[in-house]
Design a protein around this nucleic acid. Structure first.
Lengths: 342, 342
DNA sequence: TTGAAAGCGATACCAT
DNA sequence: ATGGTATCGCTTTCAA
């Protein structure tokens, strides 16, 4: 209880100096004689004084904090993301506010409210309305992560479309598969929308008729198990299942194996992300590697830079992906095992 | 840029009233005539005024924020935890600060620093030194989550020891297994420490000699795959693998299946948490259900209540678990499929 | 009902 | 080098 209540004024009184001097000493700014510095330092030490953050922030006109807004936590993807962001922010001395908009109707208001408590924000693509992003962006620096900016704010992302086109082409061309199905909801997030677009583009590029529509499900492993249950039931099953992320793919794999099917002989399965588990299952998963942590760290760096104000205005960034060919697509063990840029 | 810079004073001037009146109107406190209220509301509306959070917090002596400190994100457990905490906090109008101590040496200092920016904190058990918890607790309300408090702060947890004893007894007694091995690092977190203790207690309770030691690994699915690789190699393999959480168990299952072993015929496998995937794999996982989200929500409620100050001082809480018998332990399909309290 | 003014805790300018 | 004081934006007595 005690140590928290003590202020600059107290220390100044106790050390027999002015508050200005205390401030100078505690911040290391300005010139202070050795004598004074000692007196102040002693008082600070003795009473465990630490300047109050609110007072300091008010005077500085800065919160010393950045915010991260995401739809909800699900799986390794978000975990990586948050860690990447947090790590970078904390390193720069900024504290991290988070907000899950997950299924809350008033989330736009909450996002705006957060905008009043931080110096800058990173929003995951598709979590808040474009209009909200626009309003926010005229107040504080905003960076979009894995979304499509619609000119409202700089975006940090990968080229989902191209990556998915590359993966789908591999299935279509190298393995001659034709009855592919895409698992994931294109409307669920910009990422998935772009991947679905890339999936379709591969078909178009080869002049073959694409499947009617995606299997719209969530993005977690259990969703994949359920989707597999649906897809692999009848005799007319697909010859390849292209999943919007690795978690879904892992779930589909579990579901397929659980039904006694052989992968990739009976059905090929692919993912996206290259999560740690992807390499460890049997058969190991063919997927697309994206630098999730680095994406988040880069977004953090960008807002932090924008908050700092100096330097060129921040611009969006596109980070590279790798096509990771393993065995779940049907490639033999002697096929290239490591990634090639796409 | 524009709308953010406007202050109470501005509004007061524009509406031709005093700042006190503006404050009263914008907070709905005190008595204000309809005439004044209209004038102020108009000005506020017209200029999009929203009171600055720092000024307000400084005057109130409150941050309106709570912090959550965890070691690092890994898997569904932490995701649930964060969401449970965040959801409860935001509902109470508090913003949420997070800090991952993960592998950072100066984390104790950072935890203390966070203590200056929030009104209360929840710390995951085992993330910071007892001494740090103690120092923090004399400044702001602190609640421990899934840890052992050592009298420094109230703890919200489940009875890991009893739950794991129940599960282990089931393996030992019902299935007559004897060569069990525990996978997980008891020193990694208080939770795992308690589960290991419960595992040992089951042996002691039956007077049979427990295995020498745990297989110390991380807590994620890939760690389980690796552990399985180790354990199931030779001819002297265990007849049951008791995992510290479901993720490990899922990994071990994948590893076992990948080696062509049959579960539970060749080896039984159990988990802890009852993650969504646990029910969906083949065979479905025998495990212990713990209310992760509720644990975090309860911790949030406790710290929020403590911050609020009124009411009885907060005390620790132990939430119930359920033993969930499925098939991975060797139980047949006609065995009880749903949980029984332990 | 309304307004003037005193904080909240810290910083920084301006004299000295 | 040091101290006095205005300032940051808001809330809240205290008078009127």
């Amino acid at each position: 209880m005690g140590s928290s209540r003590i202020t600059v004024r107290e220390i100044a009184r106790l050390a027999g100096v002015s508050v200005a001097t205390v401030s100078r000493v505690s911040n290391g700014t300005g010139q202070v004689s050795e004598e004074m510095r000692r007196r102040v330092l002693d008082a600070i030490e003795k009473h465990g004084y630490r300047p109050d953050h609110l007072g300091r922030a008010l005077a500085a006109g800065r919160h010393g904090a950045v915010g991260l807004v995401f739809p909800g936590l699900s799986g390794p993807y978000f975990a990586e993301l948050i860690q990447g962001f947090e790590s970078e922010a904390v390193q720069s001395g900024a504290s991290v506010h988070i907000l899950c908009t997950h299924l809350r109707s008033d989330s736009d208001a909450q996002v705006l409210e957060m905008g009043r408590r931080v110096d800058g924000m990173v929003l995951l693509g598709g979590t808040v309305a474009d209009e909200t992003v626009r309003r926010l962006a005229e107040t504080i620096p905003v960076v979009l992560l894995a979304g499509s900016g619609h000119e409202t704010a700089p975006v940090v992302r990968v080229d989902n479309t191209a990556a998915m086109t590359g993966l789908t082409r591999h299935l279509l061309v190298e393995h001659g598969l034709r009855r592919l199905v895409f698992v994931g909801d294109p409307e669920g997030s910009p990422d998935v929308g772009q991947r679905w677009a890339g999936f379709l583009a591969a078909y178009r590029g080869l002049g073959v008729l694409p499947p009617v529509g995606p299997v719209r499900v969530g993005m977690q492993q259990p969703d994949g198990v359920l989707a597999a249950g649906h897809l692999l039931r009848g005799p007319e099953r697909p010859d390849g299942i292209v999943c919007a992320n690795d978690e879904l793919a892992l779930g589909v794999l579990v579901g397929a194996l659980g039904r006694g099917l052989l992968v990739p002989r009976d059905v090929a399965i692919t993912g996206f992300d290259d999560a740690p588990m992807a390499a460890l299952v049997s058969p190991p998963l063919t997927t697309v590697r994206q630098p999730v942590r680095e994406l988040a760290a880069e977004a953090a760096r960008l807002v932090l830079r924008a908050v700092d104000g100096r330097g060129a205005p921040v611009e969006g960034v596109v980070l590279p992906t790798d096509l990771v060919i393993r065995a779940s697509c049907g490639c033999g063990t002697d096929a290239p095992a490591t990634g090639q840029p796409i």
